Computed example of a mutant assay.
Amino acid sequence: MTVEINSCPCGSEEVSRNGQTRHGKQNYKCRECGRQFVLNPAWKAITKEQQELIQRMLLERISQAGIARVLQVSEDTVQRYVNARAVVVKKQVSRSTKPKKRLNVQMDELWSCVDNKGNQQWVWLALDAQTREIVGVHIGDSSAVSALALWNSMPPVYRQCAVIYTDHWSAYDSVLPSKRHYSVDKDSGCTSYIERFNCTLRQRVSRLVRKSLSFSKKLENHLAAIWSFVHHYNASLQL
């Protein structure tokens, strides 16, 4: 049976009924282009403006369920956007160009987890004390292997010229150049900027709040959330 429904994107009126969807709605099929569709679908693709709004809300510690309620879209729609974003987010620091001179870097590590507390993911960070930029990031375990990965994530000029201040975590001692590395107490003030950034990171990324229902279930999304905020933070320093 053919019905006249001028709803197919191709403009054809040669549309026939084609069974029902799993939600019980009448399904239609265009005889000319072969497209299947329903009238007044409950699901609609999010617009570019909504995508930008989702990204801004994710940077303000709003949960995915909260975003879905605000935008009046399904949580699955928000999750699909987050999953797609995780694939394309750049996992390398963007920072301003530095000349070869003495640079001061502060390093620290931040505990987090994925899916459960047994799956620990430590966030290792390096910050330029002069510009406040994040110049190195690694997410992994708490071993010297991760400390080395953080060291390698920094641009060459920092590895060649920077004086580095850390806490007394032993993993740093086996990796950082001994003549340019200083282990200090918190009350020294030499790691105050990176410790303050850790607080900012926890406040702005809901996945890092200790007592929260917004924890990550996928490592890829966990990494993307942290990297997205780092890029946003560094970009805001240039304004």
Rank of each mutant, 00 (worst) to 15 (best):
S146L: 03
W122T: 10
L127M: 15
D115K: 13
V78S: 04
W111F: 15
D108H: 09
N119Y: 12
S143D: 01
N119D: 14
V93R: 09
S112A: 11
P99W: 04
I134M: 06
V82P: 01
N104W: 12
W111R: 10
A147K: 06
N104C: 08
R80W: 04
R132F: 07
D108W: 14
T97E: 10
D128A: 03
L125W: 11
K100N: 10
V87P: 01
D128S: 05
N83S: 09
W124I: 14
A86C: 03
R80E: 01
K91R: 15
W122F: 10
A86R: 12
G140S: 06
W124S: 13
G118A: 03
K101S: 09
N119H: 14
A147Q: 06
K117R: 08
G140W: 05
D141N: 10
G136V: 00
E133I: 13
E75M: 08
D141K: 07
N83G: 03
A86P: 04
K90F: 10
V114M: 02
T131F: 04
N83W: 05
D108M: 15
N116R: 13
V78P: 01
E109C: 10
R102L: 12
I139M: 11
M107D: 09
Q92C: 02
N104R: 15
R85I: 00
E133K: 13
A126V: 13
T131I: 02
C113R: 11
S112I: 15
R132N: 13
N104V: 13
A149Q: 05
M107W: 14
Y81G: 00
K101F: 04
V88I: 13
Q79F: 12
L125Y: 06
V105Q: 12
V137I: 14
V123R: 05
L148S: 02
V78M: 08
W122K: 12
S112W: 09
Q120D: 09
A144I: 02
T97W: 08
D76Q: 08
V93E: 06
N119K: 15
S94Y: 13
R102F: 08
Q120R: 15
L127P: 10
V114S: 01
Q79K: 14
V114A: 01
V82N: 03
E75T: 07
K101M: 10
T131C: 04
W122V: 13
Q92I: 02
V93A: 07
M107P: 07
K98H: 12
G140A: 06
E133C: 14
A144K: 12
N83M: 12
S143I: 07
I139T: 09
S96G: 14
V78Q: 03
H138K: 00
L103P: 15
T97D: 06
S96P: 12
N104A: 04
S96A: 15
V88W: 00
E133T: 11
T77K: 03
Q121A: 09
K91T: 12
L148M: 04
V135P: 00
L125G: 04
V123K: 08
V137L: 14
N104F: 13
R80V: 05
R85M: 01
A129G: 15
Q79D: 14
E133Y: 11
